[in-house]
Computed example of a mutant assay.
Amino acid sequence: MSHMNDETTPGPGGYQPVTSTYQWQAPEPAKEKRRVGLGTALALMLAGSVASGSVVGLVVANTASTGSGEVVNSLREPSAPAPEAPGDGVEKVAADVLPSVVSIQVANRTSAGEGSGSIISSDGYVLTNHHVVSGGGNNAFIQVTLNDGRTLTADYVASDAATDIAVVKIRDASDLPVVQFGDSDELSVGQEVVAIGSPLGLSSTVTYGIVSALNRPVRASDGGGESSLIDAIQTDAAINPGNSGGPLVDMDGNIIGMNSVIASLSSGGEAGSIGLGFAIPANFAKRVADQLISTGGAAHPMLGVQVAARQDVKGALIASVEPDSPAQQAGLNPGDVVTRVDNRAIDNSDALVAAIRSQDFGQTVTLEVQQQDTGQSRQVEVTLTAE
């Protein structure tokens, strides 16, 4: 997994032209012609171009006729009028949400970075990723660029490396447009979503896709020794380095996630969208952001166990149980393997940590637990730590 940041730049690329040479041959004696429709003819032309290794450009024009043989030239015709208002769908979502999305530039004496963010209060609080603002340190110079082109100075407020969530505040701001939060617990796989941000520094970029999966435990490293673990929304909306911190919104324009991580096929420094992007659920990001603003730090519900990263165990293997923790009070023991939290299957240790973090403080959950030595299964109710 790769965090999205400005250090990733697209590699050089391009297509080398390939030409094909055809030799004229004398026509054969006339035969009855096979007739094909226009769609079939175009398909055959495309198939031929692919087979020969070249690309043939097809131009299809809207035509008009006066009926009198007079030439109609669209260059001499007036342009069609623009729509009076944005239409439905992605166009309306973009018009509604773009004013509340900013580009973020972070710099210190030795490095610079950039990302995206969502304005969450009219007086200037901006929600973004920890890895967007952490590179420059607490004393870094931070600027945000609004959708209307204004560039304003911002200050670092607080961040949580464990969940990759951060808040900055625009100085002396008032009456800013604000993004509205949706309920990420109500998301469905296949639901349409729109990602907005500044990929590769291209501000106000809008892409469209669906929710590909939910509850994906995703661990990512920023390359500086810090790692985050999020219980992510997976989407195929194209997101790239620089989209980090920008909103993933539903078709009503409500933020249901914050773009944070992309999967990459590259093992080097380059990364780009392959249709596997991951966003922090809005409900979780909202809770952490409120803590960061109120207290300067973030706490998370705890089970009170240490888990072992074991590839040969189907589930989360408990290595140790903390004294007086919710886990000890519920009767969990070292060697137990947690295979389910409520209705959610747990495949590994990261899945257990992500699932517990996403719960509410003081919530009671039901764990399905197997004893590693006997394979016997039991259900255990655990009340997580309060805030």
Rank of each mutant, 00 (worst) to 15 (best):
G149I: 06
A237N: 07
I256Q: 13
E186D: 15
N348T: 00
S203Y: 09
G11H: 00
S273M: 00
V168W: 05
D172M: 01
F284R: 08
I142S: 06
V321N: 02
D183L: 12
G115V: 12
V56G: 11
A94H: 13
Q371M: 00
R34P: 06
L352C: 03
V157G: 07
N108Y: 02
G57Q: 15
A166I: 02
V249N: 10
S228I: 01
V369L: 02
G69N: 11
V382A: 14
V261F: 10
G48A: 09
S49P: 02
E7G: 15
P86K: 06
Q379F: 13
S227V: 02
E322L: 08
Q23K: 14
T145V: 10
A308R: 10
A232P: 04
Q234T: 13
S74L: 07
F284G: 03
S49Y: 03
G275W: 02
P217S: 09
S174T: 06
N348C: 00
I346T: 06
A162G: 09
D160G: 07
T145F: 02
G201H: 05
A80M: 07
D185C: 02
T207R: 03
A327T: 03
Q372P: 00
V307R: 01
A220H: 05
P99Y: 04
R344H: 09
V72R: 11
T63M: 12
L44N: 14
A158D: 10
R34L: 11
E192G: 00
Q23I: 12
P199R: 07
G124F: 11
R171F: 01
G272T: 08
R216P: 04
D148M: 02
A80D: 05
E70I: 11
Q371R: 10
S122E: 15
N254E: 08
S204K: 15
S111W: 04
F141R: 12
F141Q: 11
D88R: 14
A43M: 00
A351V: 03
L176G: 01
V382R: 14
E368F: 00
S325K: 08
A330F: 06
L75V: 06
T295A: 07
A140E: 11
P86Y: 08
G136D: 11
T205A: 10
Q376C: 03
V288K: 04
Q311E: 10
A166E: 03
I262K: 11
D148N: 13
P334I: 10
S100H: 11
L42A: 02
Y22W: 03
S228N: 06
